[in-house]
Design a protein around this nucleic acid. Sequence first.
DNA 1: AGTTCCATGTCGCGG
DNA 2: CCGCGACGTGGAACT
Lengths: 219, 219
Amino acid sequence: MRIRVAECTVRYEGRLNAYLPEATRLVMVKADGCVAVHADGGAYKPLNWMNAPNTFTDDGDTWIVVNPKGETLTIEFGVVHFDTSIELGEDPGLQKDGVELELQRLLAERPETFGDGMSLIRREYPTPIGPVDLLCRDDDDHTVAIEIKRRGEIDGVEQLTRYLEFLNRDKRIAPVRGIFAAQQVKPQARTLAEDRGIEWVEVDYEELKGIDPDVMRLF
Amino acid sequence: MRIRVAECTVRYEGRLNAYLPEATRLVMVKADGCVAVHADGGAYKPLNWMNAPNTFTDDGDTWIVVNPKGETLTIEFGVVHFDTSIELGEDPGLQKDGVELELQRLLAERPETFGDGMSLIRREYPTPIGPVDLLCRDDDDHTVAIEIKRRGEIDGVEQLTRYLEFLNRDKRIAPVRGIFAAQQVKPQARTLAEDRGIEWVEVDYEELKGIDPDVMRLF
DNA sequence: AGTTCCATGTCGCGG
DNA sequence: CCGCGACGTGGAACT
């Protein structure tokens, strides 16, 4: 990564034309060749940029960056206050405890979302083909397997179907009801679920967050 | 702006939870307090960030950034390879569409638009807080600072006011008249400009293009 | 590879 | 301050 702090003007010609009058800014060139021009404010978004892949021309005072679409970023430098290069290496990348995991956590705390008297047996209940998100017991003492997705599509129903097939072989817990839960259940998934005798339900993430006991404790 | 290159782990807890395992990254803290953590690739988007406004706590090895919504960004540092702070100052900001720049170019070629005998001293005349679009001299030998916008709103008048404040400290050119020029000057901006003793004028882009000497030569 | 949809979207305008 | 739409949207997942 190369970091240069310098007075500069910047011109972008591409999907639109844009121009930055002379001022002191930070210009960042990453290992993959992408270039970003930052002011000392605004949000994380640079004032102007050029993503990789591109061709980079360093003509002394002027950097010209061109991408395959023909868009160009031209940076003309004045006084350079600072210029350094440093090797950062590969980044392991961001791990998002995405919404799906959060949904699972919230629903595990609120099994009654799926019916009065529903209680949690355990999260990530193991089967030979992978863990079921939630295993519960309903008020009739029947076992219930719940698959949770952010977006409920056909493959999620297929997944739950396979789990149910294995769970129902276990005499101690059979028969096992299936519930397919998602923020949004697509029509095709609804149809397939109903055809397989699997219930489906749409859950409201924001509402669940609102009644999160962890949050409640704060008040 | 503060720039630190260091080994770090980063945790974000807010609208979702996210975690960055230890690696060498660039952490940028802008003057407005916003924080961005960059890897040496990807696009211009940081791996993780926290926009202003926020409260920043520097606990030696650990930076904790909390915004008013309660979202937190926690950065734990290991080896620091590099750490520097530099003052960039205000940024004049991005001019999109090229319309502003085009207007500036056209008006620089036609300073008499602003009055008979008006002549251009220079474009992008530098001040400590950024360049004035046009600096001119009128037929009475008074200096005139002209700010050009596509859409003339209050903040443009404020900008010109600040320029005038600096320019009028320079005995060689004071007193400096101000003219606020735009394709359309909003009523609030008109009122404010008049209150500040700044003239305002609406310019016709199409008409200016029609009498552009560069274009004329083509015929 | 083309397309659709999500996003800690961000940003700017109008009410 | 809040809703609404555009964005050089960028980026991932799916066809």
